[in-house]
Computed example of a mutant assay.
Amino acid sequence: MAQPNLTLIGALRRTAAKLQKGAPYQWGHMGSCNCGNLAQELTTLSKAEIHQNALAVGRGDWHEQLNDYCPTSGLPMDLLIADMLNSGLETADLQHLERLTDRRILERLPKEKRYLRHNFRDDVVLYINTWADLLEEQLLAKIKLPTLEEMKMEAFV
Rank of each mutant, 00 (worst) to 15 (best):
Q65I: 04
H63M: 13
L135A: 05
Y69T: 04
G22W: 06
A23S: 11
L89W: 06
S87K: 12
L19R: 07
R117D: 14
K47Y: 13
M84G: 11
L140R: 14
W131P: 01
L97V: 05
M84D: 07
L45P: 02
D83E: 15
G22I: 04
L106F: 04
L75P: 02
Y127W: 08
R108A: 01
L45R: 12
N34H: 02
C70W: 06
A17S: 14
A39N: 07
H51S: 12
E98S: 11
D61W: 02
D68A: 14
I81G: 08
R117I: 14
L55P: 01
L38N: 04
I128H: 02
A54T: 00
R114E: 12
G22F: 06
V57E: 00
P146N: 09
H118Q: 10
N119K: 09
F120N: 09
D78S: 09
C70P: 00
D102I: 00
G31Y: 03
N34R: 00
D61K: 07
Q40W: 02
R117Y: 15
R121S: 08
Q95A: 09
A17E: 14
Y115W: 08
D123F: 03
T7F: 10
R14S: 12
R99P: 00
K152W: 06
L8C: 10
A54C: 11
G58F: 00
E137S: 10
D122R: 13
R114S: 07
L75G: 07
L135N: 09
Y115R: 15
A82I: 01
R14K: 14
W27A: 02
G10W: 07
L134S: 03
L79V: 15
G10K: 10
L116P: 07
L45W: 10
E137N: 03
G28W: 01
I9D: 08
F120K: 12
L116A: 13
C33P: 03
V125D: 05
L85T: 10
Q3H: 10
I143W: 11
G74I: 06
I143P: 09
P24K: 04
G74D: 05
Q26P: 00
R108W: 01
I81P: 08
P24Q: 05
L148T: 11
Q52I: 00
